[in-house]
């Protein structure tokens, strides 16, 4: 059978049309995860014992079970609870919820690296808790955790490929479709792999640009 590089290029136009699906789902999920993860972290800082215990259980579940199963639960399982979602919506729900917990864990890990004095200075100036979070804590937290957050974003992006399994017509799914119609399954997958690498590179570059910007603030 062999490997025909032309078959890879032949599959590219259709694959590239699907790249936008992955990128869009990833971006929406990442933004939701950042928002959710941030709110979750603030909620945890209130130190309400029951709330934190519940969050800890969910955290353990999300980290202890495969993302694929979480996707299945969102798509196949939720209808049993009366919530029927489209494959894309279920995918976004699973990815962003999963990632929100990881984001919260990343942020929490870096909280103690913010100096006490930063908070004390803000408090002494009479800032209320909300601006202390929004002006002092969170901006520093995002700067400190940027490399880890970018890494998490690439994890989400890679996670979008799993949505092929619940029939979202994204890059991998299109590659499979091309494969079954041409009887050359390998080459389109190679094409998909190349495109995922490229998308990853775009994300990492975006992160690098941000990091460069923040680096200027330091000595």
């Amino acid at each position: 059978m062999g490997f025909e590089i032309d078959a890879v290029w032949g599959a590219m136009p259709r694959l590239m049309n699907a790249v936008g699906v992955n990128f869009r789902i990833a971006m929406i999920s990442i933004l939701l995860a950042l928002l959710g993860g941030t709110l979750l972290t603030i909620l945890r800082s209130f130190k309400i014992r029951i709330v934190n215990a519940v969050i800890a259980v969910f955290m353990s579940f999300v980290r202890g079970t495969p993302l694929l199963i979480q996707i299945f639960l969102a798509y196949y399982g939720l209808p049993a609870l009366g919530l029927r979602l489209s494959p894309q919506a279920a995918g976004i729900l699973a990815l962003s919820l999963n990632s929100a917990f990881f984001v919260s864990e990343i942020l929490r890990g870096s909280l103690p690296s913010i100096e006490d004095g930063q908070i004390e200075a803000a408090t002494a100036l009479g800032l209320r808790p909300r601006p202390i979070w929004s002006k002092v804590v969170l901006p520093q937290l995002f700067r400190k955790t940027l490399p880890m957050l970018i890494n998490e974003a690439t994890v989400v992006l890679k996670g979008t490929a799993l949505l092929a399994v619940i029939t979202v017509v994204e890059t991998l799914r299109v590659a499979q479709q091309i494969g079954s119609s041409t009887f050359r399954p390998f080459e389109p997958i190679v094409g998909a792999a190349i495109l995922f690498l490229a998308m990853n590179l775009v994300l990492v570059t975006i992160g690098w640009v941000f990091e460069r910007r923040f680096a200027k603030e330091r000595r």
């Binding site: 100096e115 004095g117 200075a121 002092v136």
Partner: peptide, 12 residues
């Protein structure tokens, strides 16, 4: 209050 450690916000 002017703190001994100053506590300026480094990101602003």
């Amino acid at each position: 209050m002017v703190f001994q450690a100053l506590n300026l916000w480094p990101h602003m």
